[in-house]
């Protein structure tokens, strides 16, 4: 009996594989190749070695972009790792109308980043609602220019990212919270653990895996930030382009007839390496024991070898 013709599975996966090759792997390899050239539109590219990377070290804009992206990661990761967990705990228990709350908490995730960034632009503008509110409570005399100060602009964008991401990671935690057994909670409560203690000793260890996942996702997402900063600064990247993220820099470098495609590709490559860092850290953390064991066994083998050689030599003597 023939279950299927031999080529059926290949036919089925072929479209996907072609797509990955044309729209992911080829552009990626092309990026690596272009990073070492001085490619510009309408001009043959020439190999320039590491010139693009040398240029990066002296380029102020690259320094600003790297700083912005790193700050984004450092602030976003703790906020978006813990706040969604608290939110998930809040909507975890089944009380009446909880479905409504879960759904509405997810709205910011569904909405386009452009749309919500435009709303935030209004709220935080010089004459916007936030300034009116601060004025109303007598906290300020003059309006705060949130969107034309480098750090305030980055802060606004981070606030937007966190607000928009809460619901997404909440759902990730919700699925995980279902697996934290209530027996553990009951046992801990029986032993006199308070709510706070139960949170740290039962809930957090119970969702450690998803927590790792969330922090990696947030970390990678934060290095890739573009829309929030682009829209809030109206495409300019803030005063002097100092609030640009890495992706904004890539986009502004690569566009137009004068685009420095080679340089933009080199920055892309750096961005790629940055997104790999959190994955590597988690990989090492998860497989720490395996790696340690491997190292230990290698040491043991080496030690055994030396010992054996020593004995062999002794025997010869």
């Amino acid at each position: 009996m023939r279950l299927q013709r031999w080529y059926t599975p290949y036919l089925l996966v072929l479209p996907g594989v072609i797509w990955m090759a044309v729209f992911a792997l080829w552009p990626f390899l092309n990026t690596i190749a272009l990073a070492f050239t001085d490619a510009r539109p309408l001009r043959p590219a020439e190999f320039v070695g590491f010139a693009n990377f040398d240029k990066m070290l002296e380029d102020d804009r690259f320094g600003y972009a790297l700083t912005t992206s790193l700050i984004y990661v450092v602030v976003c990761v703790p906020l978006l790792t813990f706040l969604p967990l608290l939110l998930a705990l809040l909507v975890h228990t089944k009380v009446p109308a909880i479905g409504f709350f879960r759904t509405t908490f997810y709205f910011p995730v569904i909405a386009s980043a452009v749309v919500v960034a435009i709303v935030w632009e209004f709220l935080f503008s010089g004459s916007g609602t936030i300034n009116s509110a601060l004025n109303f409570f007598g906290l300020i005399d003059r309006p705060v220019e949130f969107l034309s100060d480098r750090w305030l602009l980055i802060g606004c964008a981070i606030g937007l990212t966190v607000w928009k991401g809460l619901g997404y990671y909440m759902v990730v935690y919700l699925a995980a919270l279902g697996n934290v057994g209530r027996e553990l909670h009951e046992a801990a409560a029986m032993d006199g653990a308070g709510r706070w203690r139960r949170f740290w000793s039962v809930t957090v260890p119970g969702v450690r895996g998803p927590m790792m996942l969330v922090s990696v996702l947030v970390c990678v997402g934060a290095t890739r930030v573009f829309t929030e900063l682009y829209v809030l600064s109206n495409g300019s990247g803030g005063p002097g382009g100092r609030a640009m993220s890495m992706v904004m820099l890539i986009q502004s470098m690569g566009k137009g007839l004068n685009g420095q495609i080679g340089y933009a590709s080199a920055i892309s490559l750096v961005l790629f390496l940055l997104t790999l860092v959190p994955l590597l850290i988690v990989g090492i953390a998860n497989n720490g024991d395996t790696i340690r064991e491997a190292l230990a066994s290698r040491r043991a083998v080496k030690a055994a070898k030396i010992k054996r050689e020593a004995t062999v030599q002794e025997a010869r003597r």
Partner: peptide, 20 residues
Amino acid sequence: IFFSTLLIPAEVTLTSQYLT
């Protein structure tokens, strides 16, 4: 192939994707 593609963010290949 599919798993390794997951590691490549669209932003990284932005410029060459446009060239393609």
